[in-house]
């Protein structure tokens, strides 16, 4: 039977050490993912987005993701975990492999929103009604913004695909790159920690279950755009 109590900050110190360690770990990784996004695209895409309107979208998106980092960093700090080191990290040092690169093309930015921000939403969804109430409260303020990033990326990718020709080819190439990265972001299917997160009521779904739900959501969207669904296994690091 999974842990069903609701924990506030004032209760944190009384909790089992495993709970403290798991919560500290997951908030640290989530912080890293939130700041990892802007580190992928601000440098190259903010100055080169196709229009000034899109440049403003990139700036606003980056600021919203940094605000998500801020909320996670505050929550981590409140339980005694300093995550400020991830602000200084290079992309190659990120916890999650998908963030160890740079986005240098507009289609890369669009598909990142379409596929990777959607994984981000799945990760945040995990914490809805979780046992640590401050985390539940924080993600409820973050999810509407994440929806906005996903919608922008999905629409931009669909428009590129609709144009056909070289534009569609570029979109397909970006989908091919980010699809497997997205699936890997859910982690190992049989991970021990995944089960402990659920036992403590911090997460709701197993890595495998969340990944399957993601695939069921995203594959029809890719097909509807007239793009090919990439091989879900080739290039994967975590199965």
């Amino acid at each position: 039977m999974a842990f069903a109590e609701k924990i506030e900050l004032k209760d944190f110190d009384k909790m089992d050490q495993e709970y403290k360690d798991l919560l500290s770990r997951i908030i640290t990784i989530q912080s890293d993912c939130e700041i990892g996004g802007p580190h992928l695209y601000v440098e190259h895409i903010l100055p080169t987005a196709p229009t000034k309107a899109f440049q403003l979208v990139v700036a606003r998106t980056a600021a919203e993701e940094i605000d998500h980092f801020r909320k996670m960093a505050r929550m981590a700090g409140d339980i005694g975990t300093d995550v400020s080191h991830v602000l200084r990290w290079s992309n190659q040092e990120r916890y999650v492999e998908a963030f160890r690169t740079h986005i240098t093309t507009w289609e890369g930015f669009a598909v990142f929103g379409f596929l990777v921000d959607r994984v981000g939403k799945y990760q945040l969804d995990e914490f809805l009604d979780c046992s640590y109430v401050p985390l539940d409260r924080a993600v409820r303020t973050m999810l509407p913004e994440e929806d906005g990033h996903i919608d922008f990326g999905t629409n931009a990718t669909a428009e590129m695909a609709l144009k056909g020709g070289e534009s569609k080819e570029r979109a397909q190439k970006a989908v091919n790159y980010w699809y497997v990265k997205s699936l890997d972001m859910f982690g190992n299917s049989g991970g021990y920690r995944s089960e402990r997160f659920r036992e403590w009521g911090i997460k709701r779904r197993s890595n495998a279950q969340a990944r399957e739900e993601y695939i069921a959501e995203v594959n029809p969207l890719i097909a509807k755009m007239g793009l090919e669904i990439p091989d879900p296994i080739e290039g994967r690091l975590y199965l």
Binding site: A59, R60, I66, R70, A73, R74, A76, G77, G80, S84
Partner: peptide, 29 residues
């Protein structure tokens, strides 16, 4: 009560101001 990490509040305040500056620039433009 658990002891907060050093500079938790200061970092939060700093980032909040920086984020507001970007929101303001974008929303004004």
């Amino acid at each position: 009560m658990v002891t907060a990490a050093p500079h938790t509040v200061e970092l939060d305040d700093y980032l909040r101001d920086m984020i507001r500056a970007v929101y303001s620039a974008v929303d004004t433009a």
